[in-house]
Structures are given as structure tokens and as C-alpha cells.
């Protein structure tokens, strides 16, 4: 069946490519689940992460940037949460949308003013370059590293949410914030931490993608829509739903690229429509009391 090999390699590639959206989608999902805010500025944190990587890599190397850039962005996230997002958790959701949409535009224009609109050069560090061959399937060594870091982040996040006291409070806060409050626990510091983790992951993705995609001010927009679609397909509040959706979205793109390239991106939206028609809460969406 030689005809099947190209299709299979597209599906495999798509599965792996799903990891690019995953780190962004997980942060989006967490912030929405706990705070009720759809963070349209999430792509901006991804872009800032990438730009910081370019700036920092000259001084502390790519490995250093991989650690420091997400930390800096997490601190920016903390400030944004403390002084902006916090005012909107209980407000009309449309206000949170307006705020984060505005923030995204301010951040994009800020990057344009600071660095110019042209893409700025950045490459894979020489020691991470190379390809891996599995039969006729070729893959980039660097992308396998991205996959590994994504897998570690997902595992770490899952352990944090399920095996720690911090995770228990966050999960309780998602389901029933009033009850958490009645038990004398303030969700405020938890929400700050969730935003810091969420935008930190977005920045980590930005650092990882910077060597293989153009680093330009609108790069956040390029990825945010997909990440959002992944969250919607996976289902709100469902950790593994988002992980599964990232894989499914990636594979759908691969199949579309094989049969009908012009619909590579549109196929993902079609998938979202189908999922929403059949399961309005997404594939694995939980019933979250406060959003019903």
C-alpha cells in the first residue's frame, strides 16, 4: 500500500504538530475555567516570549532564554492579573473580552514600535539541528525536542493540579468558588498563580517556536485562534480534553494538507463546527456550575 504512506506520514506529523498549540491552549483553558475570562491577549504573551528569547539568547544562550523568558513573562502576567484581569472576574464576560482584545492590540503595536514590523532573524542553535528518519518519514530533531518539553510541561501541570494542595484548591475553585470561599480560602492568590503559569507556558511555546517560524509582531495572532479552537473542541475544564483536541486538530490539518491543501486551516474550523453541533460542551467538557 504505497499510497497510504504519504497519508500516514501526514497524520503522524499532524499529531506531533498538535503540541505547538497545546501549551498555549492549556493556559487559555485554565484561565478561563478558574477566572471566567477568555484571554484574547494570550497570543501576545507567546509573542513577547519569542521576542525576549531573541534578545536574551545573545547573552545567556538559547537554554538560558528557555528558562528566563517564561519567568519574565510570568511576572508580566502577575502584574496584568493583579491590576487588570482581577477587576473583571465577576463582571459581564464581554468586558473581559474587550480588555484582553485591547491588551493584545497594545502588545502587538508595542512590539512593532520597539522592534519594527519586519521579522527578526533567529535560528535553531547548531547543536539542536538535524533530522531523524523513520523509514521514509523525515522529522526535525528540534521538533522532537519541542515535543519532549511539551510532554514534560503537560505532565508537570497534571501532577500540580491533581497531586498537590494547590491543585485541589484550583479544581475546587473551578467547580464551586462560593464553597471555596465559605471554607475560608481566598481564590485571589490562586488565580494569580494560574495566570502566571498559563502565560508562562505561552511564553515557553514562544521561545520554542521562535527558531522555526518568523518572529514578527503578529505572530501571536497566528497561533491564538488555533489554540482557542483546541480549547473549544477539547471542552472547558477538561485537562485531557485539551490534550486530545490538540492531537485531533493536528491530525485533521495533516489529512486536509494531504487531500485538499487549500483547506489546511479551514478544516480545523469545520471540525470545531461538527464537534459543537454534536457536543456543545466540547469532546470532554465538564459541566461547570458557574458557566451554566
Amino acid at each position: 500500500m504505497p499510497d497510504l504512506i504519504p497519508l500516514l506520514s501526514q497524520i503522524l506529523n499532524g499529531l506531533l504538530a498538535g503540541s505547538y498549540y497545546l501549551m498555549i491552549a492549556l493556559g487559555l483553558s485554565m484561565i478561563f475555567s478558574l477566572g471566567g475570562i477568555v484571554n484574547l491577549a494570550h497570543g501576545a504573551f507567546y509573542a513577547i516570549g519569542a521576542y525576549l528569547a531573541v534578545t536574551l539568547a545573545d547573552r545567556i544562550g538559547f537554554g538560558g532564554a528557555l528558562v528566563v523568558s517564561p519567568l519574565i513573562v510570568a511576572v508580566i502576567g502577575m502584574i496584568v492579573e493583579r491590576y487588570l484581569l482581577r477587576r473583571f472576574y465577576t463582571a459581564d464576560p464581554i468586558l473581559g473580552l474587550l480588555l484582553t482584545f485591547g491588551l493584545a492590540m497594545v502588545a502587538e503595536q508595542g512590539l512593532r514600535m520597539a522592534y519594527g514590523a519586519a521579522p527578526i532573524p533567529f535560528s535553531i542553535p547548531p547543536e539542536l539541528r538535524g533530522q531523524v528518519f523513520i523509514g521514509d518519514f523525515v522529522y526535525s530533531r528540534y521538533r522532537l525536542i519541542i515535543l519532549g518539553i511539551t510532554a514534560l510541561s503537560v505532565l508537570g501541570l497534571w501532577l500540580l493540579l491533581t497531586r498537590t494542595a494547590f491543585g485541589k484548591v484550583v479544581r475546587a475553585g473551578v467547580q464551586n468558588p462560593d464553597m471555596v470561599g465559605a471554607l475560608g480560602i481566598s481564590l485571589k492568590p490562586y488565580m494569580t498563580a494560574v495566570v502566571m503559569i498559563g502565560v508562562g507556558l505561552a511564553a515557553l511555546a514562544g521561545v520554542l517556536i521562535a527558531p522555526i517560524a518568523g518572529v514578527h509582531p503578529a505572530m501571536g495572532q497566528e497561533i491564538i485562534t488555533f489554540a482557542f479552537v483546541v480549547v473549544v473542541i477539547g471542552g472547558l475544564g477538561s485537562f485531557w480534553g485539551v490534550v486530545a483536541a490538540a492531537a485531533i486538530v493536528g491530525m485533521t490539518r495533516g489529512v486536509a494538507a494531504h487531500f485538499y491543501p487549500a483547506a489546511t486551516e479551514a478544516s480545523v474550523y469545520l471540525l470545531m463546527v461538527l464537534v459543537l453541533l454534536m457536543r456543545p460542551r466540547g469532546l470532554f467538557g465538564e459541566r461547570i456550575q458557574k458557566f451554566e
Binding site: Q10, V138, H258, P261
Partner: peptide, 20 residues
């Protein structure tokens, strides 16, 4: 020939096709 949507950022599916 492959038609590329203007919002596409990840060319890996098409790199595989070119290689094949």
C-alpha cells in the same frame, strides 16, 4: 502544486509532500 492558505504558519505538511 499546493495552494497555501495565507494564515498558515507551519509548513511541515508541505515539506513532507515535497520530499515525497
Amino acid at each position: 502544486d499546493d495552494l497555501i492558505p495565507t494564515d498558515l504558519a507551519d509548513f511541515s505538511p508541505f515539506l513532507l509532500k515535497i520530499r515525497q
